[in-house]
């Protein structure tokens, strides 16, 4: 079983991401509705993949990425950033902060599934 943490303040968006990734066998999903909740959950239990929205009310996705990469335990956690047209400027920041992939809405279910598969399977032991 691989644990996936899906972080977005929009419930519909979280549900969509989960639906897109569902076809990949053996995934278990946890939702977080804010950046702070994501950090809390990451500190309390291990995850294998983080799908993260950039624009959230309390702290943004980039700060979450920076926080995650600042922790030894989470340094190799694969991160997919999900965001909206118009956030292109954030792309460079997110990638340089240590995000692995960057999906811009709209994306197809297949596209995010392929990225997730790539990250989960190439993940260093």
């Amino acid at each position: 079983m691989s644990e996936v943490l899906v972080v977005d303040d929009s419930k519909v968006m979280r549900d969509m991401v989960v639906a897109c990734l569902r076809p990949y066998p053996g995934l278990n999903f946890t939702h977080a509705s804010s950046g702070l909740e994501a950090i809390e959950r990451l500190s309390l239990s291990p995850y294998d993949l983080l799908v993260l929205d950039l624009n959230m009310p309390d702290i943004g996705g980039i700060e979450v990425v920076e926080f995650v990469r600042g922790q030894d335990r989470l340094r190799t956690l694969p991160i997919i950033i999900v965001t909206t047209r118009g956030d292109e400027a954030s792309r460079a920041r997110a990638l340089s902060a240590g995000a692995n992939r960057f999906m811009t809405k709209p994306f197809t279910p297949d596209a995010i599934l392929a990225e997730a598969r790539g990250l989960l399977e190439e993940k260093p032991a």
């Binding site: 303040d9 929009s10 519909v12 968006m13 969509m16 624009n55 009310p57 965001t83 909206t84 047209r85 118009g86 809405k105 709209p106 994306f107």
Partner: peptide
């Protein structure tokens, strides 16, 4: 801003282009 940003993103996912355009310019 955040409400419109979220509306834009969701509308893009379910492919409602007119709402994407309107919310994009409001957001800008």
């Amino acid at each position: 801003f955040r409400a419109l940003h979220t509306i834009k993103g969701l509308s893009a996912m379910v492919d409602v282009e007119p709402i994407v355009s309107i919310s994009h310019w409001m957001e800008t």
